[in-house]
Amino acid sequence: MSKILVIAEHLDGKLNSATARAVSAAAAVKPEAIDVLVLADNVDAVAASAAQIEGVSRVLTIARAENAHPLAAVLAPQIAKAAAGYSHVFAPSTTFGKDVAPRVAALLGVAQVSDVMSVEGSHTFKRPIYAGNAIITVEADAAHAVVATIRTASWPAAAASANSAPIEALSLDVALPSHTRFVELKQGKSDRPDLQSASKVVSGGRGVGSKENFEIIYKFADKIGAAVGASRAAVDAGYVPNEMQVGQTGKIIAPELYMAIGISGAIQHLTGIKDAGTIVAINKDGEAPIFEVADFGLVGDLFKLIPELEQAIG
């Protein structure tokens, strides 16, 4: 029978919702047990949140001062050691998961399965290739542990349940590398919803025209309570920081509502939004590729249409 170890992603003592999505993927394997592994310097708050996720059998914790910051070089040897006896190790396909999972796979001597979007069997999965233009079925060797990253946009977050899974502390004898050290974390601070987990996202593209003009995107997003994203063209032009980039080389998202404003719709961008519920496009070019995937489209000047939309919303 399968036993799955899900690696918890967290920051500042808060569990990332991507972890619950990875648990959903784990549940699809129909395993005997799903355990969540929390690595931190202070594990209590994160472990308590993980214990409430429906379907979780146990929460395992490794509390070490070296785990204060999520350095892949430091976490991977501990995860590989903790993975003994597990048939699968899952991590969300986020910046965190893409950083740590390949190292875990290398330490375990297996090939990683990336961006799992559906489970066809205990060792058979579907994942996107060619910027999402094709879906491939991959089969992992059943004789070895499966290390996989989970495409979070393809999975719903497992619900938080009333029951709490037991929390157990692990004590592992593992040597940690000293050549990698944490220096600092620079990230944008915002009161807006998190881009990767928001139910509504408003994104701006090259058509917005400038960093100053992007204020119209922020204002509209705040009006409807949405997170703000951007196309790669807008990021490359310096309108917004790169953590706002949506697409194949940015964030893969699945909001209920996605509004693409001044975005032409390059295939790399469409890859990042293909799982969105409703797509609304605003662009002055009626032939823009974005209209091929949009549920609703407005052709016209965004600087005239956005204020009109704001007035209509009231």
Results as ranks from 00 to 15, higher is better:
residue 291 F to M: 02
residue 310 E to C: 08
residue 70 P to N: 08
residue 72 A to Q: 08
residue 186 K to Q: 14
residue 260 A to E: 00
residue 28 A to F: 07
residue 156 P to H: 13
residue 100 V to K: 04
residue 193 P to M: 03
residue 77 P to I: 12
residue 202 V to I: 14
residue 154 S to A: 15
residue 64 R to L: 11
residue 142 A to E: 14
residue 20 A to R: 10
residue 218 Y to H: 15
residue 110 V to R: 00
residue 205 G to S: 05
residue 91 A to L: 13
residue 162 A to N: 12
residue 265 G to V: 01
residue 85 G to E: 09
residue 282 I to P: 00
residue 23 V to K: 01
residue 279 I to E: 04
residue 130 Y to P: 00
residue 145 A to E: 10
residue 128 P to L: 06
residue 107 L to P: 07
residue 16 N to G: 08
residue 220 F to P: 09
residue 176 L to F: 05
residue 76 A to N: 07
residue 172 L to F: 12
residue 96 F to M: 03
residue 70 P to S: 12
residue 194 D to K: 15
residue 250 G to W: 08
residue 207 G to S: 08
residue 239 Y to S: 08
residue 52 Q to M: 14
residue 66 E to S: 13
residue 72 A to R: 09
residue 183 V to G: 11
residue 155 W to H: 02
residue 159 A to N: 12
residue 7 I to Q: 05
residue 121 G to Y: 10
residue 179 H to D: 15
residue 145 A to F: 02
residue 115 D to K: 09
residue 7 I to A: 06
residue 115 D to Y: 10
residue 254 A to V: 12
residue 98 K to C: 00
residue 118 S to T: 14
residue 132 G to F: 01
residue 150 I to L: 04
residue 46 V to M: 13
residue 84 A to L: 15
residue 56 V to G: 00
residue 6 V to F: 01
residue 291 F to S: 01
residue 292 E to T: 11
residue 98 K to L: 02
residue 3 K to A: 12
residue 303 F to R: 03
residue 24 S to Y: 04
residue 198 A to P: 13
residue 198 A to T: 13
residue 10 H to L: 09
residue 285 D to L: 02
residue 4 I to H: 05
residue 66 E to T: 07
residue 205 G to V: 02
residue 116 V to W: 04
residue 205 G to T: 01
residue 113 V to Q: 02
residue 293 V to M: 03
residue 165 A to G: 05
residue 300 G to S: 11
residue 48 A to P: 00
residue 93 S to N: 11
residue 196 Q to N: 13
residue 4 I to Y: 07
residue 232 R to L: 01
residue 140 A to E: 03
residue 186 K to D: 10
residue 247 G to W: 00
residue 70 P to C: 06
residue 4 I to W: 08
residue 272 G to C: 05
residue 245 Q to F: 03
residue 287 E to K: 11
residue 113 V to W: 00
residue 190 S to D: 07
residue 232 R to D: 00
residue 132 G to D: 01
residue 268 Q to E: 09
residue 274 K to S: 10
residue 234 A to E: 06
residue 282 I to C: 06
residue 254 A to I: 07
residue 70 P to G: 07
residue 97 G to W: 00
residue 11 L to M: 09
residue 33 A to Q: 11
residue 102 P to Y: 03
residue 64 R to E: 13
residue 260 A to K: 05
residue 99 D to S: 15
residue 303 F to W: 01
residue 257 L to M: 14
residue 179 H to M: 07
residue 115 D to H: 12
residue 271 T to D: 14
residue 196 Q to M: 15
residue 234 A to M: 08
residue 49 S to L: 08
residue 313 I to K: 04
residue 43 V to L: 08
residue 245 Q to E: 02
residue 277 G to Y: 06
residue 106 A to H: 03
residue 145 A to C: 14
residue 102 P to K: 03
residue 292 E to W: 03
residue 14 K to C: 07
residue 241 P to W: 01
residue 165 A to E: 04
residue 89 V to I: 09
residue 302 L to W: 03
residue 127 R to N: 06
residue 58 R to P: 00
residue 239 Y to F: 15
residue 86 Y to C: 09
residue 42 N to R: 15
residue 223 K to R: 15
residue 279 I to G: 05
residue 288 A to N: 01
